[in-house]
């Protein structure tokens, strides 16, 4: 993932040397890791996605397009579309909420900066599941938030917050917000203040300086943040089970069900997984290409 501050064509133009023998030796653990844990599982998934359903789970090897036809079935398409909707909404909220935070942290003086960065990262020290269950305690009808609102007499009846689509979006935003803040922060941190001053000196208002100078210069961070939020929030399934009451199935839930639920339909689960993987690769490629085009145009 490219995270250069300004997006000046650092990798786009320069010829890259192939690593020498010593280089390969140093790379070998990484290559072995990637082969064993990235390439091999993806290949197995691809092979399974064309196979037949096994009686007790598992697969009978063979070649059929049935599983991919299933992915296009309206029953599953409605869930794919809904998942994309939730992931897109999560990404937009994370961007709107995360950008100002990242900007403030990036422009703060060093002492504050580390403290604020720490505050963003501290939640990572606790398990994601425990943090999600903590939201149940806050949102439930006899929970912390409702007691507070009732005490302050802001509401007469407890609000229905847990097990709603809103709770799912809240959980997703809460989970992924740091993934938006951190890459944008790293772009903002390297932002050259002189360029902003120049824009202001040359007559740009603050809004224009922001949209024409600051945003383009931090766009690599934005792109990385968008990818890091959108892609995992499309595949996650625990948040909607815990905070959504299992009512809002997403692609992740459907895939899980093919392996661990009643369905026992591994090939179909593999086909869904392969479709997701290919879509992610495509999105990544498009974003990257755009970044490169932008960098070259400057």
């Amino acid at each position: 993932m490219r995270q250069e501050a300004t997006g000046f064509a650092a990798t786009a133009g320069g010829a890259q040397r192939a690593p020498g023998r010593a280089g390969w030796l140093l790379l070998s653990p990484l290559v072995a890791w990637a082969l064993a844990f990235v390439v091999a599982p993806a290949v197995i998934m691809l092979v399974y996605s064309f196979a037949h359903r096994g009686t007790l789970g598992g697969v009978r090897l063979g070649f059929t397009m049935e599983n991919y036809a299933g992915v296009l079935d309206p029953v599953y398409m409605q869930i794919v579309i809904r998942s994309i909707g939730y992931a897109a909404l999560t990404t937009v909220i994370c961007l709107c909420a995360g950008y100002p935070v990242a900007y403030v942290i990036g422009r703060a003086d060093a002492r504050w900066r580390n403290l604020l960065l720490m505050a963003v990262m501290v939640p990572f020290w606790t398990s994601f599941l425990i943090r999600t269950y903590a939201w149940v305690t806050i949102l439930k009808s006899e929970g912390l938030l409702n007691s507070l609102l009732l005490q302050l007499q802001l509401v007469a009846e407890p609000l229905e917050m847990l097990y709603t689509p809103g709770a799912v979006v809240l959980g997703l935003v809460y989970t992924f917000l740091p993934f938006m803040i951190l890459p944008i922060y790293s772009s903002v941190e390297k932002l050259d203040g002189a360029l902003i001053e120049a824009a202001l000196d040359l007559g740009a208002g603050p809004l224009r300086a922001f949209s024409r100078v600051i945003v383009p210069l931090t766009s690599p961070g934005i792109a990385a943040g968008v990818l890091l939020v959108f892609v995992p929030s499309l595949g996650i399934y625990a948040v909607n089970d815990i905070l959504g009451g299992g009512r809002v199935d997403m692609i992740g839930n459907i895939i899980e069900n093919q392996f661990k639920g009643n369905a026992r339909n591994w090939p179909f689960g593999a086909a869904l997984g392969t479709t997701l993987l290919v879509s992610f690769a495509l999105i990544y490629w498009l974003v990257n290409r755009r970044q490169r085009a932008m960098a070259e145009s400057r």
Partner: peptide, 21 residues
């Protein structure tokens, strides 16, 4: 119920998706 399990799952998935928001 053998392979019918996949049909049961599909029916449930469909109705759940349509009833949800």
């Amino acid at each position: 119920i053998g392979p019918l399990a996949a049909d049961v799952d599909k029916l449930f998935t469909d109705l759940k998706a349509k009833s949800g928001s």
